[in-house]
């Protein structure tokens, strides 16, 4: 068993700061920069799904089409979830259940409210975006925060989660894998 970390809430203090400082949804629909393409390719590579093309989503409607595609990759989602469960098991070894659970719930509640507001702002600027899709954006972003929180509490080098969070922090939204493409809004 690994050595105990600091109290989970304290261990997540830095992440809390990153969440507050991030440019959530600020660059949706903007042309992808070289650095973002590299980051997205790094995310795709870390997922172990082979070579994926990076496909930019033009607008919210385009993003919604990707998110509802019947051809979406279950391997992508299941791979992330297997990593999440491994991190959770390790974090549970390192922290008491109550302290771990409370720290994660408090962080994701704060992060969820923050990213929801940012998603709503971005959607209002674009216009014509449904309340449900704003919830989806907030859910994706808050889920990314939760995954990184678990990885850090586990002391794990969870590259896909860290890379994905950096894309969110840069104002992007990785929409997931459809066929052999990773869609990035």
């Amino acid at each position: 068993m690994s050595a105990p970390l600091a109290h989970p809430a304290a261990a997540l203090a830095a992440l809390r700061g990153e969440v507050r400082a991030a440019s959530w949804f600020a660059a949706l629909g903007e042309p992808l920069t070289g650095g973002e393409l590299e980051e997205a390719q790094g995310y795709a590579g870390a997922l172990g799904l082979g070579d994926l093309d990076i496909l930019p989503a033009r607008d919210w409607a385009d993003a919604e089409r990707h998110l509802k595609s019947p051809d979406w990759s279950t391997a992508w989602w299941d791979g992330e979830d297997a990593l999440r469960r491994a991190c959770l098991a390790e974090a549970e070894e390192r922290h008491t259940e109550r302290a771990l659970w409370t720290a994660l719930t408090d962080l994701t509640t704060e992060a969820g409210d923050l990213v929801h507001g940012r998603a709503a702002t971005a959607a209002a600027r674009a216009g014509g975006v449904s309340a449900a899709t704003i919830h989806v954006a907030a859910g994706a972003a808050a889920h990314a925060v939760y995954q990184v929180a678990l990885a850090r509490l586990a002391g794990a080098a969870a590259l896909p989660f860290e890379t994905k969070l950096r894309l969110f922090a840069a104002g992007r939204w990785p929409l997931g894998v459809v066929g052999k493409t990773l869609a990035l809004f």
């Binding site: 979406w72 899709t133 989806v136 859910g139 994706a140």
Partner: peptide, 8 residues
């Protein structure tokens, strides 16, 4: 779908 998953 991812849409339904993140909404949930």
């Amino acid at each position: 779908t991812p849409y339904a998953k993140w909404l949930t």
